Simulated scan of single mutants.
Amino acid sequence: MSLHADAVSVLSRFAGQDALREAYLGFLAAREDACQRSCAAGHITASALVLDATGSSALLTLHPRVGRWLQLGGHCEPTDSTLAGAALREASEESGIRGLRIEPTPIHLDVHPITCSLGVPTRHFDVRFLVRAPVGARPVRSAESVDLQWWPLDALPSNVDDLYPLIESALARLR
């Protein structure tokens, strides 16, 4: 199965955010290249909210281009065959943590404007997954991050207002 076909399948089964889910599916139906970074109109991305083993802290990255604390994730690569696999690959690369476990069903969707590596304004159709770190996991910052650290869910940095719906979705999944 191709990444595009996986994205259609995963989003067709996604429960919640109905209007946004339908917009994603419409975009995928209109663009065979919707999962490729080269799609200048916008592209599907995959991200991961990495929680520690207790579910009380989130691993966030201080993104160099955006200048804000964000969940881990990014562009799908030609070698990715599933959205969950892309999210897990990104989380592993950006955290340096081995043994991450991903919930295969997305927990949240978000579309946001961004000027990414293409150098022109575009949109990311982000599909967000819940990832759990093993006990005692220690992240190692990659070159894709200015900083990387665990934040208690009840003491997040001040500029993460847009992450609260994602965190609420993750906590609902854990219940």
Results as ranks from 00 to 15, higher is better:
Ser12Lys: 11
Ser117Gly: 15
Thr115Pro: 08
Pro121Trp: 00
Leu11His: 05
Val10Trp: 05
Glu94Lys: 10
Asp80Ala: 02
Ala87Trp: 04
Ala15Thr: 10
Leu72Gln: 04
Val135His: 15
Ala86His: 06
Gln71Asn: 15
Ser169Gln: 11
Gly96Ser: 03
Ser158Arg: 05
Leu28Ala: 00
His124Ile: 00
Gly74Thr: 09
Ile114Gly: 12
Pro139Lys: 10
Ala58Val: 10
Pro139Cys: 10
Glu103Ser: 06
Ala86Gly: 08
Ser2Trp: 15
Ser158Asn: 01
His43Leu: 14
Ala7Lys: 09
Glu93Thr: 11
Leu163Pro: 03
Gly55Leu: 05
Ser142Pro: 06
His75Thr: 10
Gly16Arg: 07
Asp161Leu: 05
Ser145His: 09
Glu77Tyr: 11
Phe129Ser: 09
Leu174Cys: 11
Asp52Glu: 00
Ser158Trp: 05
Ser117Ile: 14
Ala5Phe: 15
Arg65Lys: 15
Leu62Ile: 04
Cys116Trp: 15
Asp126His: 06
Ser9Lys: 14
Asp126Ala: 03
Thr82Cys: 11
Pro157Leu: 02
Asp18Ile: 14
Leu171Phe: 05
Ile167Ala: 07
Ala87Gly: 06
Ser9Asp: 14
Ser169Glu: 09
Leu148Phe: 00
Thr79Leu: 10
Ala29Ile: 05
Pro139Asn: 06
Ile102His: 00
Arg98Cys: 01
Ala41Ile: 07
Glu90Ile: 08
His75Phe: 10
Gly26Asp: 12
Ala41Phe: 11
Leu153Asp: 01
Leu163Trp: 02
Ala41His: 13
Leu171Arg: 08
Glu32Lys: 03
Pro104Asn: 12
Asp161Gly: 07
Arg138Gln: 14
Leu100Gly: 09
Cys39His: 06
Ile97Thr: 03
Asp154Trp: 00
Ser81Ala: 14
Leu109Asn: 09
Val160Met: 03
Ala87Val: 13
Gly119Leu: 08
Pro165Asp: 03
His124Glu: 04
Leu25Thr: 05
Arg13Asp: 12
Tyr24Lys: 07
Gly96Lys: 08
Gly85Ala: 13
Arg128Ala: 02
Leu72Ala: 09
Ala172Glu: 15
Gly73Tyr: 06
Trp150Leu: 03
Trp69Met: 04
Asp33Ala: 01
Ile114Cys: 11
Ser47Thr: 09
His63Glu: 04
Asp154Arg: 07
Ala15Met: 13
Asp80Gln: 12
Val140Asn: 12
Arg141Cys: 01
Leu3His: 13
Ser47Lys: 05
Glu168Lys: 01
Arg141Lys: 12
Arg128Pro: 00
Arg13Glu: 13
Ala87Lys: 04
Val111Pro: 05
Arg101Trp: 11
Glu168Pro: 08
Ala58Trp: 02
Gly67Asn: 15
Leu72Arg: 00
Ser9Cys: 15
Leu49Ile: 07
Ala15Trp: 12
Leu62Gln: 03
Ala53Trp: 02
Arg141Val: 00
Ser158Pro: 01
Arg89Ser: 09
Leu59Asn: 06
Thr79Cys: 05
Gly96Gln: 03
Leu25Trp: 05
Glu77Asp: 06
Thr122Gly: 05
Arg132Glu: 02
Pro78Ala: 01
Asp52Trp: 03
Asp6Lys: 11
